[in-house]
Every structure is written in structure tokens, then in C-alpha cells.
């Protein structure tokens, strides 16, 4: 049995390519695109092959929309707006934020499985694995948003602004979740096991999404929590999306800068997360290895 490429080995000038095709190392940019795409494709195939994950990703948003609108819809009253209209932006934001944690647990899992070791011994772009990871999780989150919006429309939620505003709202949600994926990816590369990410994200993200304006008016919260909610980035995202979808009704905007300038706040947040965490992730990636 020969495991060599057909033309055999030429010890004097071995070429690092099979079947005689000459391979020039591609330019950095071309490599970045093609490697990023290769890894994205790999992640999406994984999604396709694990139906449980896909079902979870589809059912969870439906469940949240239905649970919150049908259960709390009857008992929670928001002065100035119908609760379903008010609620939906909160659920959108919460779901995409939780969706981004997948970037962390998946990085941790790949690290544990040794796949990262394989990638790191290949002459690929140093950010491709991270790009692929965050890209495919963006696809997953986009799917979630579409499903949630569809379910929302079924239970009476409506976009009350223009198409362009609605698209801007969707864009803001997805950009925020994309940037947050990088934060989670860094965490994923820093923990010992994927389970840590799941547990830790619940411990941190539940309070963060609940002590906000996602499900109730922040003014109904006790003093310190109200202040926290008004400065909570999740609140800014929810407020911005609410505004872009035209779901604010006549609810007064809290008197805090991030709430008064929600869209700008979210944009600043997105840029900050990317500027800080993309380089940190790439640096971290260059030194991680299983065990």
C-alpha cells in the first residue's frame, strides 16, 4: 500500500502538494476569506448534522415568544403600550444574547476535542477559526430572529415603523450578538471545559437580561436595580430595537443617557466589543492547545 500521492516522493525537492498541482501560498486576504469560509462551512455542517441542536435553536425562540406573551401578557401591564408589543424586543434581545454564548461553549468543545490543535498546525489564517465560529453563530442567530419575528406576528406583534427601520433593528440585534460572540469566544478559550461556559453564562446573563427593561419597565424596579437597568447595555439594546420597530407606544423613556440615546449606545457597545475582543481572541488563539 502506498499512502503517498501518485507521483511519489522526491526527497530532494519535495513539494508540499499532492498530485503535482503547484500550490502558492495565497495572499493573506484571500487566505482569510477562504479559510474563514471553510471553517464556517464546517460549523454549519455540524449544525445540519445535529438535529437536536437545530430543533432547540428553532423551538426555543418560539417557546419564549409564546410563554412570555401568553403567560405574562395577561398579568403584566405596561402603561402606554400593549404588553405583547412592548415585550417582543426584550425577547429578541435576550434570545440573541443567549445564542451568542454558543460561540463560547463551541470553542471550548473544539479545544477539548483537539480540533483546535489540528487547526493550529495547519498553515491557515490565524483568525479563520474565530471568524468561522462567529459567522456560523451569526447565521444561527439570524435564524432565531426570523423565527421569533414570525411567531411574534402570529401573536399580534407588529412593526409600526418603516421597512428600513425594521431592517435597522434586525441589523442592530445581529451586530450586537455578533460582537458578543467574540466576547464569549474569548471566554470559551479560557475555561477548562465547555460546561463551565453554559453554567457561567446562565449565572451572568440571566440577571443581566432580567435586571433590564426587557420584560418590565425599569421604573418599576427598586432604586438600585432601576439605576442598574437604565445603564445596562441589554436595556440599551432592547430600547433601541423597540424604537426601531416602533413598539415604544407612549411609554416614557427613562432619564438616563444610554436610554435617551439607545441606538448610539448600542453602536458604541458593538464597536467597543469588537475593537477589544477581536484582537484579544486572535492573540489567545495563537497560544491555546488541548491539555
Amino acid at each position: 500500500m502506498s499512502v503517498l500521492a501518485p507521483e511519489g516522493r522526491q526527497p530532494e525537492h519535495q513539494q508540499a502538494s499532492p498530485s503535482g498541482s503547484r500550490v502558492e501560498p495565497p495572499s493573506e486576504l484571500a487566505m482569510w476569506f477562504s479559510d474563514g469560509w471553510t471553517v464556517t462551512k464546517r460549523n454549519l455542517t455540524k449544525l445540519k448534522r445535529s438535529p437536536d441542536m437545530l430543533v432547540f435553536a428553532i423551538l426555543q425562540p418560539i417557546m419564549f415568544v409564546l410563554l412570555f406573551s401568553q403567560i405574562y401578557g395577561g398579568s403584566i401591564e405596561v402603561e402606554g403600550s400593549d404588553y405583547t408589543q412592548y415585550l417582543m424586543a426584550g425577547i429578541f434581545a435576550q434570545t440573541v444574547i443567549f445564542g451568542s454564548t454558543f460561540s463560547g461553549s463551541a470553542m471550548a468543545q473544539d479545544l477539548k476535542d483537539g480540533i483546535i490543535d489540528r487547526f493550529r498546525t495547519l498553515p491557515m489564517s490565524s483568525s479563520a477559526v474565530l471568524i468561522g465560529r462567529t459567522n456560523s453563530d451569526l447565521v444561527l442567530n439570524a435564524l432565531s430572529v426570523i423565527i421569533m419575528m414570525g411567531t411574534g406576528l402570529l401573536v399580534g406583534w407588529r412593526v409600526n415603523t418603516s421597512l428600513s427601520s425594521a431592517l435597522a433593528g434586525i441589523g442592530l440585534l445581529l451586530l450586537f450578538s455578533y460582537a458578543f460572540s467574540w466576547v464569549m469566544a474569548l471566554l470559551g478559550m479560557s475555561v477548562k471545559s465547555p460546561e463551565v461556559i453554559n453554567n457561567a453564562s446562565f449565572m451572568i446573563l440571566f440577571p443581566l437580561t432580567f435586571i433590564s427593561n426587557a420584560f418590565v419597565l425599569s421604573s418599576t424596579l427598586p432604586g438600585p436595580l432601576e439605576a442598574f437597568a437604565n445603564w445596562n447595555p441589554v436595556s440599551a439594546l432592547v430600547q433601541a430595537v423597540r424604537e426601531l420597530f416602533g413598539n415604544t407606544g407612549t411609554v416614557p423613556v427613562p432619564d438616563a443617557w444610554p436610554m435617551q440615546n439607545a441606538v448610539v449606545t448600542v453602536m458604541i457597545g458593538i464597536v467597543l466589543m469588537l475593537v477589544i475582543f477581536v484582537p484579544l481572541c486572535i492573540r489567545k488563539f495563537a497560544s491555546i492547545s488541548s491539555r
Binding site: 477562504s34 471553510t38 464546517r42 455542517t45 480540533i115 489540528r118 495547519l122
Partner: peptide, 20 residues
């Protein structure tokens, strides 16, 4: 270090792509 969700062929093809 193989990806369990990919087939044997896809695993090898992916490595080939990453070797450009």
C-alpha cells in the same frame, strides 16, 4: 482530532482546503 459531525471525506477535504 477529527470532526465527529463531518464524514471522513469532509474531514480530509477540509484539511486540504486549509492547506490551500
Amino acid at each position: 482530532a477529527v470532526d465527529e459531525n463531518l464524514t471522513g471525506f469532509e474531514n480530509l477535504e477540509m484539511v486540504g482546503r486549509l492547506y490551500h
